[in-house]
C-alpha cells in the first residue's frame, strides 16, 4: 500500500471524526440539515438525553469483555508507549479520539503490522455495536451512516493492509 493510499484512508477517517464531533453550521449545510436540528439530535445522541445518552461515544461502553476503566488505562498506556498524546479533556476511549490515534499510526511509514496489532487490541467489537446503536437511535441518518462507515473501515482495515503488504 502506498503512502498516498494510507493518507487517503486517514483522510476519510478524519472526515468521520469531523462528522462525529459536535456539529458546525458548515457541516450541517454540507449534509443538508438545519443546524439547530442537527445540534439537537447530536446533544440527544451523545451529550445528555432522555433516558440517558442513547449512543455514548465511548468505546469502553460497548466493550463487554473488559472493565471500562481497565480498557481506558490500557489504551492510554498504549498511546504513551507509542509517543502519542491524547486530549486529556476526554476519556481515553472517546471514539473520535481513538480514530485519530489510528490515523496517526497509519501515517507512519511501514506501520502496517503495528496498525493491525492496534486494531486487534483495541478496536474489536465496539465499532459494530456503536454502529448498531446509532442505527437504532439516530433520527438524522447522518450519524448512523458515519458509524456504519467507521465500522466498515475499521473492520476491513487489517485485511486491506495485509493484502496490500503481500502484493
Amino acid at each position: 500500500m502506498t503512502t498516498q493510499d494510507k493518507q487517503q484512508i486517514g483522510q476519510r477517517l478524519l472526515e468521520l471524526v469531523a462528522l462525529l464531533d459536535y456539529p458546525t453550521a458548515e457541516i450541517a449545510e454540507l449534509c443538508g440539515f438545519s443546524f439547530e436540528k442537527l445540534e439537537n439530535c447530536y446533544v440527544r445522541l451523545f451529550i445528555n438525553d432522555l433516558g440517558g445518552v442513547s449512543a455514548p461515544p465511548f468505546a469502553g461502553c460497548y466493550v463487554e469483555k473488559e472493565d471500562r476503566l481497565n480498557f481506558m488505562s490500557r489504551f492510554s498506556g498504549f498511546c504513551r508507549e507509542a509517543g502519542i498524546e491524547i486530549d486529556a479533556s476526554f476519556p481515553p476511549d472517546y471514539i473520535p479520539m481513538m480514530v485519530e490515534v489510528l490515523v496517526l499510526l497509519l501515517s507512519v511509514e511501514g506501520s502496517e503490522a503495528d496498525v493491525r496489532s492496534l486494531v486487534s487490541s483495541f478496536y474489536q467489537r465496539w465499532p459494530r455495536l456503536f454502529a448498531e446503536t446509532l442505527k437504532e437511535h439516530d433520527k438524522t441518518g447522518l450519524y448512523a451512516d458515519a458509524g456504519k462507515e467507521l465500522c466498515r473501515i475499521i473492520e476491513e482495515l487489517p485485511d486491506i493492509l495485509i493484502f496490500n503488504a503481500a502484493t
Binding site: A18, D21, L30, E85, D87, P96
Partner: peptide, 19 residues
C-alpha cells in the same frame, strides 16, 4: 448514505498528536 463524504472539512487532528 453520506453524500458529503469526501467533502467534509477535516481541520487537522482534533484530539491526538505526536507527544
Amino acid at each position: 448514505g453520506i453524500g458529503c463524504l469526501g467533502l467534509v472539512p477535516v481541520a487537522g487532528m482534533r484530539f491526538a498528536g505526536w507527544a
